[in-house]
Write a protein that binds this DNA or RNA. Sequence first.
DNA 1: TTTCTTGCAAACACTTTGCATGCGG
DNA 2: CCGCATGCAAAGTGTTTGCAAGAAA
Lengths: 143, 143
Amino acid sequence: MINLNTEELTAIFRKYGLKLTTQRLAIFKLIISRKDHPTTEQIYEALKSDYPTISLGTIYKTLHLLQELGLIQELGFSEGKIRYDPNLEPHINMVCTKCGQVNDYEPKSLKPLWKDMVSKLNFEPTGQRIDLYYICDKCKKKE
Amino acid sequence: MINLNTEELTAIFRKYGLKLTTQRLAIFKLIISRKDHPTTEQIYEALKSDYPTISLGTIYKTLHLLQELGLIQELGFSEGKIRYDPNLEPHINMVCTKCGQVNDYEPKSLKPLWKDMVSKLNFEPTGQRIDLYYICDKCKKKE
DNA sequence: TTTCTTGCAAACACTTTGCATGCGG
DNA sequence: CCGCATGCAAAGTGTTTGCAAGAAA
């Protein structure tokens, strides 16, 4: 998980001649506060009460920018939506195959095992994505 | 990887009152013959010389059907496209972050390590997706 | 004041849907 | 011959783009 404060973020933006606007800061803070990798729509819904004029376009542009800066990763799903994940470390995305909900899962045992696994490969990856499919409690109850 | 012959596939289709058409068989055979998880567009391009009247709609419908039957999995990517993977066993998708190319990688060491990792979780997943990001040789040369 | 960013709307890309025709069983 | 599947075209989503107006530095 990235653990940047506002000053550090400002510094990164300044380095590239970018401006840290109210909207960008709000989007960034929201994304790092959540473990469910929201879609743009969900981010929009979450922010529009505090920022009534914010637009979906800005959200898309900002998220894409954050990914280019290496601060988050974009995860495509087969439902045809992109979700945004601020956690670049090896971790598990638990994906409900019924409702599509995603949640981070970070068992302590994962990282050493993962490191071990990756060390046995013949190349050095620049990142990773690990999804586990299951049916969440809510959806189980519905059945 | 699924390893079905035409008769077994016919049996599955019959069980659900579905018809095994020329198009469906062609799409199925193509998908299991490739390790690069093609997009619908790529499947369309690959098939249209042998099946000039095949349509994208049929390809979408067939692939979705195969996924419902549990024969393949749909993988969404942040480029906004869906790729189709006939390999439901734990394996690595090597994803080039420059060009988006995907390739299967199945080191022998993976499965035992993966089993070990999953056994330490407190739930039983119904499937998984493991992507490793890297830059492929072609893209490295271009730089 | 300069330059980058926003918000809006239009354009775009990929996928799904509906229906008349065609084909498998 | 019955019923499901195809192919086409239109509709539907999610995302990107272009540009005038606005805000950060």
